[in-house]
């Protein structure tokens, strides 16, 4: 078990494929949700799923890879946007927060993997997939846009219903995928 520095080929494959899923999620106006106004991007769904399905390291790497694709100028964000301009821009903080969010979702998922259920999935995804993104994206918006933090926050409230819906969808999917194809390696407490 010398996993620390070793990267298994399957992990590389998972990371590359999941980054591709993230891109494809941007192609779809995905999810016709009733009641909720169309969510701006299905890609935060990809952030949550990466962490929930692959765990912290692989999930975080997959989404980091996606951000690299954005940064090197591929049009992989919804609407064919991409390039450094997006990252330097007002909403760039959210994009930069994606890998951190996926990592946090993965970490929490690993911690509760043995008892994983819908309630825990909702918690993991809400913290990593929504709170972490807001915690980084909103201050970024405030700095780049020269706005007071409060204004940037109220400006982001429109995303809340959509994000809540995405947390639910991601959690339902995560629980189902765990049953079909469990991949996360649980974090053992003190030498189990």
């Amino acid at each position: 078990m010398e996993l620390g520095e070793q990267v298994r080929s399957k992990d590389i494959a998972l990371v590359a494929l999941f980054a591709a899923i993230m891109v494809v999620l941007g192609f779809f106006p995905l999810i016709e949700l009733p009641l909720v106004p169309a969510p701006f991007t299905a890609q935060t769904l990809g952030v949550m799923l990466a962490g929930s399905v692959l765990g912290a390291r692989r999930g975080g790497s997959a989404i980091l890879l996606f951000v690299v694709l954005v940064a090197i100028g591929l049009p992989v964000l919804p609407g064919g946007r991409g390039g450094l301009g997006v990252i330097m821009g007002v909403t760039g903080g959210f994009v930069l927060a994606y890998p951190v969010g996926a990592f946090v979702v993965g970490l929490l998922t690993e911690l509760c993997w043995r008892r994983y259920n819908l309630a825990l999935a909702l918690l993991c995804n809400a913290v990593g997939g929504a709170l972490v993104l807001y915690a980084i994206g909103i201050p970024w918006m405030a700095v780049v846009g020269g706005l007071p933090l409060g204004r940037a926050f109220t400006g982001s409230v429109v995303f809340l219903p959509g994000d809540a819906a995405k947390v639910v969808v991601a959690s339902l999917a995560a629980v189902a995928v765990r049953r079909a194809y469990p991949l996360v390696e649980p974090r053992e407490r003190a030498g189990a």
């Binding site: 494959a13 590359a16 494929l17 591709a20 899923i21 399905v53 189902a176 995928v177 194809y181 991949l183």
Partner: peptide
Amino acid sequence: VPLLVRTLRLADGLG
């Protein structure tokens, strides 16, 4: 869910 599971299976062969 089917999309994810299909992709994860793909990763086996790719690995």
